[in-house]
């Protein structure tokens, strides 16, 4: 894929994302969204007795369940076909998916040597508006871990088996919020079992 065709494609995706966000998406108050997510995390902290590893897992599971469903909604809105390579996948996630659902465009960075892993850097995460982590949470809680689950679930439904995890988070005192997505393998489509 030549770079000018690549640039053109990125532009098209960007325009698509903005168009869908402006016209086809119902909007809600962002503070309501932020507070709802905040109470979920805070309640989990209470329920699991501040066992932050378990809470991270629970947020991941919740995200996974959201992801397997939200991908259908996403495809219905944008009518995009399956991506031909992982580069395109990264562009679609950043410029269309995040834009349509959260009005965010994270930047793509840190591509690995073999082009099978990249990072998303989220500049102002709406989930963590007004949040200050308590000191014991700062060492082990990934507040927005639900993103990891959503991406894993959604990508799995389009036959991409990926590992998604947080690398750094502003809430924890790091410089930026960074998410790492690594492609393990492309899952094969199922074929019908042959009966004798």
């Amino acid at each position: 894929m030549s770079s000018s065709a690549g640039q053109q494609q990125i532009k098209t995706l960007k325009v698509l994302g903005e168009d869908v966000w402006k016209n086809k998406v119902e909007k809600i108050n962002s503070e309501l969204f932020t507070l709802t997510y905040g109470t979920i995390v805070s309640q989990l902290c209470q329920d699991y007795d501040r066992d932050f590893e378990k809470i991270n897992d629970e947020l991941y599971k919740m995200g996974y369940n959201i992801g397997v469903r939200i991908i259908e909604d996403f495809l219905a809105r944008t009518a995009l076909p399956r991506c031909t390579d992982f580069n395109t996948t990264s562009e679609v996630i950043s410029k269309v998916a995040f834009k349509v659902f959260l009005n965010l465009t994270p930047t793509i960075a840190n591509w690995s040597q073999s082009n099978d892993a990249f990072s998303l850097i989220i500049s102002d995460n709406p989930l963590s508006d007004f949040v200050e982590l308590p000191i014991d949470a700062m060492k082990s809680l990934w507040y927005s871990n639900v993103y990891c689950g959503v991406l894993k679930g959604a990508l799995e439904m389009v036959q991409l088996d990926c590992d998604v995890s947080f690398v750094s988070d502003i809430l924890r005192g790091d410089n930026q919020t960074e998410l790492r997505i690594k492609l393990n393998k492309v899952l094969k489509d199922e074929i019908p079992v042959i009966e004798d």
């Binding site: 065709a5 494609q9 995706l13 076909p81 031909t84």
Partner: peptide, 9 residues
């Protein structure tokens, strides 16, 4: 093969 991913298969 399609030219780019947006022109569908």
């Amino acid at each position: 093969d399609p030219v780019d991913f947006l022109s569908q298969k």
